[in-house]
Amino acid sequence: MSNAELALLLLILGCAAMRGAGLLVAGRLRTDHPFVRWAAAVSLATLTAFVLAAVVAPGGILAEIPLAARGAGLTASVSILFWRGGLALPVLGGLAVTLALAALFNA
């Protein structure tokens, strides 16, 4: 078993355990329990770091998109979210801005 397969297997088990534990303790552990709140905060902070790092200092093929296009794409997505709401429209709008600027810079 390769490292990638082992890591995936462990992640699958970890995610199933978290979902199962959540369903199991529901009713016993309140949603405002300190542990649940801490886990939610760590989850959001990790996701935030992932998004910001992908915009500011991405690795691999993402780095081919100019920083200005990445930043403008995310700004457009968030702006559309606060303007119109929804999920698909902000994502597609941000993607369109990213693509347009990337095409402009790569022309």
């Binding site: 992640l11 978290m18 989850s43």
Partner: peptide, 17 residues
């Protein structure tokens, strides 16, 4: 990766009821 998906736990707690 588990930390990034750690929200499954509070999500399941909130959803179950």
């Amino acid at each position: 990766a588990v930390a990034a998906n750690a929200r499954f736990l509070p999500m399941a707690v909130a959803l179950a009821p």
